[in-house]
């Protein structure tokens, strides 16, 4: 294990069985995450993008050991998280936290804000009520909330403020690693930028490592050091952010980038409109999973599945005919 890496995934698969019929037999598998190998460095933000149903949230949950992987290894700080049980697993849970998308659904409406933020402290730390209260005040100030409002219920807070409560809860135990699963997607734009700034500030001050899962590509570009693009359970391209956005190699990445509406009516549209929809992960196409929608597909693509391969400069792509292939050789 490379010591710069906080997290290493090796050949991780997560299949969900499809059961049907009278005997509830397994009739198929939804291959939500299919053979993913990647590593996340200490202190970086790794962005994971893809359309709905591509498996990005499932991957986030496998990383946190909320789902057991069907196959493969998840190494966190050198230990395989899936082998841990009991006390060891509890200790690990302190180090990895999650921020959810929905600021309304992820907070218990019957808990006071101080109890929501204080709950992880009660579960994991031996602290007196007074110590917990001091810590809650400190956390609320850190995320930009008025700590005098800690004796209120979540319904008295706006969407952006609730997301700050969720963030305060996630950082309460000083974790090393946070999965932000669409953490800003549900927020209005004027509030979204406030929360993005907060996440970046916390990363600087607390040395956090983020797995930032989102479908908003502009937000991912802004916050991430490296980005992985997922399609139907696989990583199709992985690269440092700047390069990925400036020079996408996978046709899917290129199509995804060209589909984003830009706030500039004078800009000429050079859009690659993909035909059709994302196929079902229960029955993915043969060969390259993207080939039925790929504008550059050739005969080989429907037979041979391309492996994710290194192209130097930290770039990886799973395509037989990557764009700008001349420069890659």
């Amino acid at each position: 294990m490379n010591t710069d890496n906080l997290l290493e995934l090796r050949g991780v698969k997560k299949y969900f069985p499809i059961r049907s019929g009278l005997l509830n037999r397994v009739v198929g598998q939804v291959k939500a995450v299919d053979d993913i190998t990647l590593s996340i460095r200490k202190g970086e933000t790794f962005g994971l993008v893809g359309e709905s149903g591509c498996g990005k949230s499932t991957l986030g949950r496998v990383v946190l050991n909320l789902h057991k992987a069907t196959e493969g290894e998840v190494n966190f700080n050198g230990t395989d998280v899936q082998k841990l049980t009991g006390q060891e697993l509890r200790r690990l849970r302190k180090e990895m936290q999650i921020i959810f998308q929905d600021p309304f659904g992820s907070l218990n409406p019957r808990f006071l804000v101080k109890d929501i933020i204080g709950e992880p402290l009660r579960l994991h730390e031996r602290m007196t009520e007074r110590e917990i209260d001091i810590r809650v005040v400190e956390l609320m100030e850190l995320v930009g909330l008025d700590a005098t409002r800690r004796n209120r219920y979540p319904n008295e807070f706006s969407g952006g403020q609730r997301q700050r409560i969720g963030i305060a809860r996630a950082i309460a135990l000083n974790p090393q690693f946070i999965v932000a699963d669409e953490a800003v997607s549900a927020l209005d734009v004027s509030v979204q930028s406030q929360v993005i700034n907060l996440l970046m500030k916390l990363q600087r001050e607390l040395g956090l490592t983020f797995l930032f899962i989102a479908h908003g590509l502009n937000v991912v570009r802004h916050i991430s050091d490296r980005v992985g693009v997922m399609y139907l359970g696989k990583i199709v391209e992985l690269a440092p952010t700047e390069e990925l956005f400036a020079r996408p190699l996978h046709p899917y990445t290129a199509a995804l980038l060209s589909a984003i509406p830009r706030p500039d009516p004078t800009r000429k549209r050079e859009r690659i409109v993909l035909q059709g929809d994302v196929p079902s992960p229960a029955n993915p196409p043969s060969g390259c999973r993207f080939h039925p929608r790929c504008p550059a597909a050739k005969a080989k693509c429907s037979v041979d599945e391309p492996k994710l391969r290194e192209l130097g400069d930290g770039r990886q792509v799973a395509c037989h005919f990557p764009l700008e292939a001349g420069s890659i050789g």
Binding site: V189, S190, S193, N218, R221, H222
Partner: peptide, 22 residues
């Protein structure tokens, strides 16, 4: 317009914000 991060230009810098809430 300013608070949405763009697809070109600087990354990782503090974003423009409209203070407060709706």
């Amino acid at each position: 317009l300013k608070s949405v991060p763009g697809l070109e230009g600087a990354r990782g810098e503090e974003l423009f914000t409209i203070k407060g809430n709706i």
